[in-house]
């Protein structure tokens, strides 16, 4: 037995919150794989999620993804696809990433999943520094759903597709069967076990893709425009599923989207522009930008536009309303109270 040289960043959690207190909870499993050491980290992330009791601020503020000054360029491209980008994603939040076509959103998602590696800067997932050695571990923590419902469906039937990721990770069959059923139940597709993909709607296929991700029990799910090829019903179906999951599973959701109405429902929005992080804030803060967003190639939601116009006309609205329901509710209550 031979041990690979241990790299400097091998114990990334040591700088995690500065204390060694957590290490007691951490079950460290060293797994020897192809003569290199991998760290089995499932336990660590779960432990890291329990908010440290000493802290005063929101328990949400635990970064599960920590990106520092990354830059990335595709070989065949002139300019950088991502330039000097830093970003933190907190445990349990719903983060929306918006930006014009080609602003680098998908590239960022790929980097978080180790499908590409940054030229400069570092990425940490649940305290594990992402690199070629740890990628198989971090990939289990970060699930990804892509845009095209068809081109990510690998199996010949629904259950085969959900099992694909489990097979890849060498999960024993008995466990696989349980997880496949359980994940399909979570996305309400358990009645379609033996259905073939060409008999499913786009929304159903995306829900199966989500089940495939859930089966691997990730901490983070990245949706890269996962609803953009769906009709309105399919889109609502998928978003509803994600909302449900987020509530019950302590899932952190990173949703890359063109749809600002969808982004309006997120906890936080990040605006990308030409490979850089342009702005970061709550939906309200972001939609204050207004014309600036249009210049960045985005379109503000209808309800925000209306509330702005109404305010210009002298209707007393205290803020820009991000959803039509909210706006309508505000309008008829303020009217009736007069």
């Amino acid at each position: 037995m031979r041990f690979a040289k241990i790299p400097d960043d091998f114990f990334p959690w040591l700088k995690y919150d500065g204390s060694l207190r957590q290490i007691g909870i951490i079950q460290l499993k060293l797994v020897l794989m192809r003569e290199k050491i991998f760290i089995h980290t499932g336990q660590f992330c779960a432990a890291a999620n329990e908010a440290p009791s000493g802290r005063e601020d929101k328990p949400m503020k635990e970064p599960v993804v920590k990106i520092e000054n990354i830059s990335f360029k595709y070989d065949e491209q002139e300019g950088y696809a991502l330039k000097d980008l830093s970003l933190q994603v907190y445990d349990g939040e719903w983060l929306a990433i918006v930006g014009h076509n080609g602003s680098g959103k998908s590239t960022l998602a790929k980097l978080m999943n180790g499908l590409q590696y940054p030229l400069e800067g570092t990425i940490e997932i649940c305290g594990i520094r992402l690199n070629k050695e740890t990628v198989w571990e971090t990939r289990k923590l970060v699930g990804m759903v892509f845009q095209s419902p068809d081109n990510q469906f690998v199996g010949t039937t629904v259950q085969d597709d959900v099992a694909f990721g489990l097979e890849n990770n060498g999960v024993p069959r008995g466990e696989m069967v349980k997880r496949v059923i359980a994940s399909l139940e979570k996305v309400h597709m358990e009645k379609f076990l033996d259905q073939e993909p060409h008999h499913l709607s786009g929304g159903q296929k995306q829900r199966v893709a989500i089940a495939g991700v859930l089966a691997l029990q990730p901490k983070i799910i990245i949706l890269d425009e996962a609803t953009s090829m769906l009709d309105p019903r399919g889109r609502e179906e998928v978003l509803e599923t994600i909302r449900e999951l987020k509530g019950t599973n302590q899932l952190t959701v990173i949703s890359i989207t063109h749809d600002l109405e969808e982004a309006a429902k997120a906890d936080r929005i990040i605006v990308m522009n030409r490979g850089r992080l342009y702005k970061e804030g709550t939906p309200e803060e972001i939609f204050q930008m207004d014309e600036e967003l249009v210049e960045l190639g985005l379109d503000i939601p209808f309800s925000v536009k209306i509330s702005k116009k109404l305010r210009e006309k002298g209707i007393p609205l205290d803020k820009f309303y991000l959803s039509e329901e909210e706006l309508v509710a505000q309008l008829w209550t303020s009217h009736s109270s007069k």
Partner: peptide
Amino acid sequence: KRAEELAVAMEARGYRGGEGRTKYR
């Protein structure tokens, strides 16, 4: 285009060849 996207999706789901893989069917 399909082939390319499928390859990325498979990799994202942890595919790394036949070694160490279990079978569902």
